[in-house]
Design a protein around this nucleic acid. Structure first.
Length: 474
DNA sequence: TTTTGAGTTGTTCGA
DNA sequence: GTCGAACAACTCAAA
């Protein structure tokens, strides 16, 4: 005896509350909740290692909140769903939209395929405050500068949807015949590096709300200024939860606005606006992840230096602020926003390595790896993106450390071999007198690397290179 | 169509 | 130590 039902296809909306597509599916009473790991269509944009680890934990949490009824598959979604349709009496198929170009193409085909077979197929907005196609200038072209995008485009448009409650009285069904177990997706790979990351991140929808509560309690009231200090608990660390949809931007927007409308809350909402801006860029420029948005940068004289890239990836550049950030990334799957700018500027401007090297490393190692944010942000720091940093804005990792990690708590945490070095030389050990190094147990080139690049010279070199691009001399 | 004001996150130098 | 200017024009967005 077949039961009438709707499918809710979970993708980057791994939550029950404020889930518009799930709410629609729930109107049918019986819902078959599914997740499909699709590496076939993703190809080079398949999830990186840290994302897979996160997904593994989050699927477990989601499955638990569904009473163990989540059905899991691997492969081409069109084939997987067609096979489900053959075996169940499915009346409708719902999902929340994703915005990576390859997913847009894939989903359009799936929608067509089932629509001509008289299936109710509908996608909803579960991941953005405003749809990219709704935010345009008066001349109907997309914004290229953040401030007008946000102030005029977003804030003067229809306000974000009020969050929905989790659907009640739903009977969740499971595909007992063909569902895989989560561990059969092999999301964890062979190495066990993720074991170190687990304590940092409570999982799932509940984990997201605990994190939000914590942020409201200790971070939000200091957010605007405090967000610059990587040793302080003033940033939300909600990015991975947002990426996988364990919390929606609407929930964050609504919550933060409701606890107090002041400059702190507004600033946090503005950061959500940056996420929207990244998605807008990716939507209107599908080649954003690989191609310079400003074509004149195609001629930029990037350097080729494999060993420098490896030193950067491993946090062995000999520049403490950079190494601390890269080690935070490797150890926790996360990096504080201020430090992302510092390590990005260092890679692109001091080492003059192509921004796509950074983009790919972050893609593999960040638990919040997000195609829109990652591509737009790397293009921003490299100077070739929309509303990009001016070319002469080159972060000095020594100055940045002194300014934003004045007591060295962040650097000492991630570079224990420098922990005894006094503040004055912590960010530039190569300037320390011999006896200071000796007293701190530091031997440059042995216990901690000599800097792989001269900050002053490389800065001057970069300025010249960027100047020539700006003027179109190459 | 033309004009005008403005543009995430910095550093260095010299007074 | 602190402060303002220079860095470099260019493009965007809207009046």
């Amino acid at each position: 005896m077949k039961e009438s039902m709707a499918i809710h296809w979970f993708r980057q909306d791994l939550r029950l509350a404020d889930n518009p597509a799930l709410t629609k599916a729930a109107e049918y009473g019986n819902v078959l909740p599914i997740y499909i790991l699709d590496d076939e269509n993703a190809q080079e944009y398949a999830m990186g290692g840290a994302s897979r680890w996160w997904l593994n934990q989050s699927l477990s949490a989601l499955n638990a909140s569904l009473g163990g009824k989540l059905s899991i598959y691997k492969g081409n979604p069109l084939e997987v769903i067609a096979d489900i349709m053959d075996r169940f009496d499915v009346k409708a198929l719902y999902w929340n939209r994703c915005y990576e170009p390859w997913r847009i193409d894939r989903d359009a085909k799936i929608k067509d395929y089932f629509k001509i077979r008289d299936m109710e197929v509908q996608s909803c907005n579960g991941s953005l405050l405003w749809e990219p196609w709704d935010i345009k200038k008066n001349d109907h072209t997309p914004y290229k500068v953040f401030t007008p995008f946000y102030n005029k485009g977003c804030l003067q448009a229809e306000p974000p949807r009020k969050p929905l409650l989790a659907p009640q009285n739903v009977a969740y069904l499971r595909d007992e015949l063909k569902s895989m177990r989560i561990d059969q997706l092999n999301l964890l790979g062979r190495r066990d590096w993720y074991k170190k990351m687990s304590p940092h991140w409570p999982m799932g929808e509940k984990g997201a709300h605990d994190r939000l509560e914590q942020f409201l309690f200790e971070g939000l009231s200091h957010y605007k200024e405090g967000r610059n200090f990587p040793a302080k608990p003033y940033v939300s660390r909600l990015s991975p939860y947002l990426h996988f949809g364990e919390v929606s931007p609407n929930q964050l927007w609504q919550t933060v606005q409701s606890v107090g409308q002041d400059t702190q809350s507004d600033h946090f909402c503005k950061e959500l606006g940056w996420r929207e801006f990244s998605y807008s860029q990716l939507y209107y420029h599908p080649e954003l992840p690989r191609k310079n948005l400003q074509a004149k940068f195609d001629a930029f004289p990037w350097s080729q230096n494999e060993s420098a890239l490896v030193a950067w990836q491993r946090g062995q550049t000999g520049v403490p602020m950079v190494d601390a950030g890269m080690r935070e990334l490797w150890q926790t799957g996360y990096m504080h926003n201020r430090v992302r700018m510092i390590v990005g500027s260092f890679l692109v401007k001091n080492l003059r390595l192509h921004w796509t090297h950074g983009e790919r490393w972050f893609w593999d190692t960040l638990v919040d790896a997000d195609l829109a944010n990652n591509s737009a942000s790397w293009q921003w720091i490299a100077g070739c993106g929309a509303d990009a940093a001016p070319y002469f804005r080159i972060f000095n990792p020594v100055t940045q450390g002194q300014k934003f990690d004045p007591k060295g708590a962040y650097v000492r945490n991630f570079i224990p071999e420098l922990s005894k070095l006094e503040d004055k030389y912590l960010f530039s050990p190569w300037e320390a007198p011999e006896h200071v190094l000796e007293n701190s147990g530091v031997i440059l080139g042995v216990t901690y690397p000599n800097p792989i690049v001269d900050l002053k010279k490389s800065r001057a070199h970069a300025l010249k290179a960027f100047q020539s691009v700006k003027q179109g001399l190459i």
